[in-house]
């Protein structure tokens, strides 16, 4: 019997998410799926997102919808907010990043990298409440560009360390059967 073709769509919010997923998460998904397609949703209308989910459901593909927790007090509230805007979204396909994607970046930064930028080694372990502004404060002056710095973080990234340091990232990996293959 032929093995069915498996595809997964990754709904991602902004460019920092896209860069992170392309570099770290997509290669993991590619070991489980024939096709992994990322789709940025931030500048899309509600109607457009709705149509996209409908099409994915119709083709029988999987999807994950990833968003920052922002100012919501908990994951449940964030999910409720997303689902009230997008009635087709299924709760179990939503993954909430705590607090922002920068937390997932710094969670996997190697000790060697943190030492090179003069950051304390324990900074990765307290990353779930780290904000964008706190992350920006870590960027040494020699980096003229935040984009450059974020690319540099991903060059020496430890996925296992990231899973240990950031519970929301670990949850994402576990729920998508990625934790066992890292």
């Amino acid at each position: 019997m032929a093995v069915p073709y498996k595809a997964i769509y990754l709904f991602l919010e902004g460019n920092d998410d896209i860069t992170f997923f392309h570099s770290i998460v997509k290669p993991l998904f590619e070991r489980l799926y024939d096709s992994v397609i990322s789709w940025p949703y931030r500048q899309r209308s509600r109607r457009h997102i709705q149509k996209f989910i409908k099409a994915i459901d119709a083709m029988g593909a999987d999807y994950v919808y990833v968003g920052d927790i922002d100012s919501f007090p908990c994951v449940t509230r964030k999910k409720e907010s997303l689902m009230s805007a997008q009635s087709r979204l299924r709760s179990e396909r939503i993954y909430v990043v705590k607090r922002e994607i920068e937390g997932w970046y710094i969670a996997g930064a190697s000790g060697r990298f943190l030492s090179a930028i003069g950051a304390p080694a324990e900074i990765g372990s307290a990353c779930e409440n780290r904000t964008k502004e706190q992350f920006n404060d870590l960027i040494p002056r020699r980096f003229q560009s935040r984009i450059d710095f974020m690319q540099e973080v991903l060059k020496d990234y430890d996925v296992k360390l990231a899973a240990d340091n950031n519970p929301s990232f670990r949850y994402f990996l576990e729920k998508n059967d990625l934790f066992e293959i890292i």
Partner: peptide, 16 residues
């Protein structure tokens, strides 16, 4: 060296 490193990172941001 530092400029070239940064340039390549910016290029990879656009064209991985």
């Amino acid at each position: 060296g530092e400029s070239k490193r940064a340039f390549l990172n910016l290029m990879r941001y656009m064209l991985p």
